[in-house]
Amino acid sequence: MTVRFSSGTWYLFDYGKVISTEPEPADWAALERETGLQLAPASSPYWAHREAFDAGVASPAEYWARVLGRDSVDADKVRALEDLDAAQWSHLNPETLRILETLAGAGAQLALLSNMPVRMSERYLRESSWPAYFTRTFFSGQLGLIKPDVRIFEHVLNELAAAPGDVLFVDDNLPNIEAARSLGLPTVHFGPETDLERQLAS
């Protein structure tokens, strides 16, 4: 099947669990060795404090102090934890990359909207290959807004100078999908079984 695209459409992709895969067990194990905590479960402090970190409200030092239940964390410890955190979200989905390469090669308009802390987004923009597919990139930590707040979608629409119906949004998180739909964006709810090529072709 060949991915087809509309010349007037922006394709707006999420990063985590769409372009990247989920962290692997070995990644969580590395964080556990560094912290002494099991951080993978949804109830863990890693996730409990993540929204403020992704939104740029909490600094890396503040976030990791909250995760560890401490008043403060020294700079070397913060750097080590940030390195492990960036590494565990750096595993890429080859099928999504193939589709991005096809779309970019055909001249499609590609943008990215991700909930991601500032330093992680700066690291990926500097060191990773996947940002080259995108004309525009938007990160929650840099904007001070976080999905599913509709204001972040309004900001993106304004920056792209696009009508909602001309921006197709791909994300794994249902609340984010619902927020985009509330503004009139067509969406693809991405999951492990999603045939993204077929969804885009249709």
Score class of each variant (00 low, 15 high):
residue 4 R to V: 11
residue 124 Y to T: 11
residue 46 Y to E: 05
residue 195 D to E: 13
residue 82 E to A: 03
residue 94 P to Q: 08
residue 129 S to Q: 13
residue 23 P to A: 02
residue 33 R to C: 00
residue 118 V to G: 06
residue 173 N to T: 14
residue 111 A to Y: 06
residue 126 R to V: 01
residue 40 A to T: 02
residue 198 R to D: 14
residue 147 K to S: 08
residue 150 V to M: 05
residue 96 T to R: 06
residue 43 S to L: 02
residue 136 R to T: 06
residue 63 Y to M: 04
residue 51 E to L: 11
residue 105 G to C: 03
residue 112 L to D: 10
residue 156 V to P: 06
residue 164 P to Q: 07
residue 107 G to T: 04
residue 64 W to K: 04
residue 78 V to R: 04
residue 141 G to V: 14
residue 58 A to L: 15
residue 136 R to W: 07
residue 104 A to G: 11
residue 143 L to I: 14
residue 195 D to K: 11
residue 153 F to Y: 13
residue 117 P to E: 14
residue 174 L to W: 12
residue 178 E to I: 05
residue 10 W to K: 03
residue 2 T to V: 12
residue 81 L to S: 05
residue 98 R to H: 13
residue 81 L to G: 05
residue 157 L to A: 07
residue 163 A to I: 02
residue 11 Y to D: 09
residue 182 S to C: 08
residue 63 Y to W: 04
residue 166 D to T: 02
residue 125 L to I: 07
residue 66 R to M: 08
residue 145 L to M: 12
residue 109 Q to Y: 01
residue 194 T to Y: 08
residue 142 Q to S: 08
residue 40 A to V: 06
residue 93 N to L: 03
residue 58 A to H: 15
residue 153 F to P: 06
residue 75 A to T: 15
residue 128 S to A: 15
residue 53 F to V: 09
residue 5 F to M: 05
residue 175 P to N: 15
residue 97 L to V: 13
residue 66 R to F: 00
residue 1 M to F: 10
residue 118 V to Y: 05
residue 157 L to Q: 07
residue 154 E to W: 00
residue 12 L to P: 02
residue 132 A to P: 01
residue 181 R to T: 09
residue 105 G to L: 02
residue 123 R to V: 10
residue 199 Q to C: 13
residue 97 L to E: 13
residue 7 S to H: 00
residue 50 R to E: 05
residue 157 L to F: 04
residue 128 S to C: 12
residue 122 E to H: 12
residue 70 R to L: 13
residue 73 V to S: 13
residue 2 T to D: 12
residue 202 S to P: 09
residue 75 A to F: 06
residue 164 P to Y: 08
residue 48 A to K: 14
residue 83 D to T: 10
residue 76 D to I: 01
residue 173 N to V: 12
residue 156 V to D: 09
residue 140 S to P: 12
residue 164 P to M: 08
residue 70 R to F: 01
residue 37 L to N: 06
residue 42 A to G: 03
residue 197 E to S: 13
residue 85 D to A: 00
residue 78 V to A: 01
residue 55 A to M: 12
residue 165 G to R: 03
residue 126 R to H: 05
residue 115 N to D: 11
residue 11 Y to L: 02
residue 139 F to S: 11
residue 198 R to M: 14
residue 134 F to Y: 04
residue 123 R to H: 13
residue 198 R to T: 15
residue 161 A to F: 06
residue 73 V to I: 15
residue 114 S to R: 11
residue 86 A to E: 08
residue 90 S to F: 02
residue 131 P to G: 15
residue 201 A to V: 10
residue 105 G to K: 05
residue 49 H to W: 01
residue 152 I to N: 03
residue 132 A to F: 06
residue 37 L to T: 08
residue 98 R to Y: 03
residue 67 V to N: 09
residue 78 V to Q: 04
residue 154 E to Y: 00
residue 110 L to W: 08
residue 5 F to L: 03
residue 1 M to C: 10
residue 63 Y to G: 04
residue 127 E to Y: 09
residue 81 L to Q: 05
residue 15 Y to I: 12
residue 60 P to G: 09
residue 46 Y to D: 03
residue 52 A to Y: 01
residue 145 L to H: 04
residue 154 E to T: 04
residue 9 T to S: 01
residue 134 F to P: 01
residue 58 A to N: 15
residue 198 R to F: 10
residue 130 W to L: 12
residue 144 G to P: 14
residue 172 D to A: 13
residue 1 M to E: 14
